[in-house]
Structures are given as C-alpha cells and as structure tokens.
Design a protein around this nucleic acid. Structure first.
Lengths: 210, 210
DNA sequence: GTTTGTAAGTAACCATAATCACAGATAATA
DNA sequence: TATTATCTGTGATTATGGTTACTTACAAAC
C-alpha cells in the first residue's frame, strides 16, 4: 500500500499497534483481473483483505456450473479465507479477481496471534463473518423464493451498485453467474429494455430505471 | 442442566472459569416442541446454546413461504443469535423447536465480556460461525445446482441422520421445508418407494436404502 | 358404525425456464 | 474489404415442477 492514509480509511477503528503489524507482516499483492484467488478444494494459507478492486465469490459444481454468491470490495475481507485459514481447511468456493485487484494477504499465524492481542482485530473478524453470512442469507432468499426475472433484476442492480450505471458484462457471463442459460437472459433483458429499465449494448448494458 | 458432566461433554475444551460463568449467568430454559425461538425481524437479546433437542432454522418470505436451512442439535450454538446479539441487529431468519428443547441462553453482555476473557469462548464462537456458514454453502449448492428429486433425497437423508431411520414428517411438512408443493413431494416419494429407498407410512416414512 | 378431519395418490393441465436451432449484428483481423 | 469470431435476438420444442381437482385411505371423535 503506497498510501498509508487510505488504509486507515478503508479499515477504520483498528488499534494503532495492529495497523503497524498489518503493514509489517501483511503482504501487498497486485493481481490482474481474471486471476483465480481461491479454488474449490484448495487449502488456504493466508487471509485476504481487499485494498482495491472487486473480488467475486462463487460456487462451482462437479459439472463446471457456476453460481454467483457475492462480491468483495475495498475495505472488506474474505470470510472464507479466514475460516479456512483458521482450521487449515479446504475451500468450498471459488474466488476470482473481477477487476485488477490489490490485496493484503496475512499469513495464517498472525490470524490467531492478533485475535488474542487486538480486540479490534477480533471485532473485525466477527464483523466480516456476520456480513458474509448475511450475504448468503440474501442469496438463499433470492434463489429459494424468486423467479428468474426477479433474480436477474436483483443481480443487475447489485452490479450497478458496484460498477455504476454502465456495467460491462455479456449475457453469457450473467447467465453463468445465475446458473441459467444465455438465451433466457437475453430474452429477459430484452423485456427489461422494452420496459425502459435498461439499454442493451454489445458487451454491456446501462441501467436507466429510477 | 441437571447433569453437569454432560455439559462438559457437549461443549468440550472450554476453560474452567468459563464453565463456571456459563453455569452462573447462563439461563437454562426448557421449551416445548413447536415454539418459535427467533422470528424474522425480531431483535435478539441473548445467545442460545442447544443442550438438548433439535432447533430448525429457516427463512420466510413475505408471502409466508418457508425454506429450510439447517438444524441445530445438542452441543451447537445459534450463529444468528450470536451475530445479532453482538450488534443488536434484527434476525433475518426464523428458528423453531422441532422437538422439546433445552437451551442455555446467555445474556448479550457476557458475549462480549467472555470474548476478551476466554480464548476458548473465542474459538467456540468462531467455530460456530464457520459451521453455520458451511451449512449455508451446502444449502446454496443444493438449490442452485440440483433438481427437486436430488434435493428431496439430500433433505430426507439429513433428517434420517438426525432422527434415525424412522422419520416423523408429513409430505406437507417436507414440501414446506423445500418450498415445494405437497403433490410434488408425494409423487417423488412414491417413486422412491417404488425404487425401494423408503417405506411410506401415514405421518412418517422409513429409510431402508443402504 | 358413522361422521369428520387430515394425509396421501394421481391424472390433467399450466408456467417457467432450459435446450435446440438458427439468423442477424457487431467488432476484430487478415 | 472480406473473413472470422463473438455476441445478441428469437421461434420452436422440451423438461421440470407447480396447480387444479379429485379420489382414496386412515384414524379419531361422536
């Protein structure tokens, strides 16, 4: 992290000593878009804090189908890597850099050390768990109770919130995230366009509703 | 809890002082089957440890549909109540006693106090989060990638694991848990019976496969 | 034993979304 | 400019599971 001040803003309310240790023992990594950060079945040896960019978490099944769960952005940490790091367990999910990403990776041993040493780290870990757990609850809610059109709307809105009104995604990419098919997404998006919610461009769309 | 020894077995590896405080400040409650322990939208003021019985966690939508997530049994704690207690937040899920249940409820203030004081409590809280998070991942996996027949099989097997080969559930109850309809469950279970997986009785079924 | 309530079985039909099969559109590259 | 690759649009077909509408089965209450 070249700009230390920004770090304080991204992760506020940590103790002074903890900031120092984070700087000292954390490893800043710049990762190009598209890189897989975490693969299902992999054993994890470090926890990740996102300093910049977007990291996407999703599940994969044995036939290669995907299902999007949630994105991480700057100031957030990967609960899965914390959980797995903690008990040296294997990941059940996949994480991928959606944009170029800057990460602070923290070697496993400090996870535990800091938990006893810094109360603020403790709060941070718990807060991370809580937020991710709640994201999963929302995801379950969508898929359990809603039809494809509603799920698509929810998904697109989430993207718009993260990337702005103009989102760069192909219909195929959206279909993959929702574990649907390209044709279904094209049809539903065309309907949204007819209803004046979006404008469809090649490789992207623009949200114009509200 | 009348049998203190059992408590040590249910929640092993806690510090001696913590056991004492749990006994002293925790409140043992005996709750009849069917009682709602946690309602969506409710603010929570205590954390629950399950000493005996089965507690079911599920989501509800605005139209009253339900969707089963997972069961808690003895030796497990309610991650939702921990999460919510911690930040005085509202529950997004519903918890209900499936059988008669014995709970140890812990007032909010001790959650925080013990986190700093007892390392073992700390581990316990983290372990609880981790297990529940993983349950949700499994749930998402089921609903995202699998058809009703496979989901039903997974669900029934889970019940069998908890309650034994002879499970007391009506088709309607199963349908509600899977957010499906009674007719669909009847159809699929009849097929399972024809394939020699189960025997269907009124109000219950028996798992005979494997 | 008859009534009543609840559970389960089943057929017919319908809705949603997945799949198949193209056709056109747009952008990159030869 | 022509060629190729990728993306999008759309109709037709199919599969899954939800809905409607009964019927049958069982068991408790009268």
């Amino acid at each position: 992290m070249n700009d230390q001040k920004q770090f304080y803003e991204l992760f506020p309310n940590l103790e002074e000593g903890l900031y120092e240790e984070l700087m000292k023992y954390g490893d800043v990594k710049e990762i190009p878009a598209g890189t897989a950060l975490l693969k299902a079945g992999q054993t994890i040896r470090s926890t990740m804090l996102v300093l910049d960019g977007i990291v996407k978490l999703y599940q994969e099944d044995d036939e290669g189908n995907e299902f999007f769960m949630y994105n991480l952005q700057q100031g957030q940490a990967c609960a899965v890597s914390m959980i797995c790091t903690y008990q040296q367990e294997k990941s059940q999910v996949t994480a991928k850099a959606v944009t170029d990403v800057v990460l602070l990776t923290i070697p496993l041993e400090y996870m535990d050390k800091w938990l006893s040493k810094y109360k603020s780290w403790h709060y941070f870990v718990i807060k991370t768990y809580r937020s991710r757990y709640e994201e999963l609850l929302k995801t379950i809610n969508e898929i359990a109770f809603k039809n494809m059109d509603e799920r698509l709307e929810f998904y697109l809105k989430k993207q718009v919130k993260q990337f702005g009104k103009h989102v760069k995604l192909t219909h195929q990419e959206i279909a993959t995230d929702l574990n649907s098919s390209r044709e279904v997404i094209s049809r539903l998006m065309k309907k949204m366009e007819r209803n004046g919610w979006i404008i469809i461009n090649r490789n992207s769309f623009e949200w114009i509703k509200d």
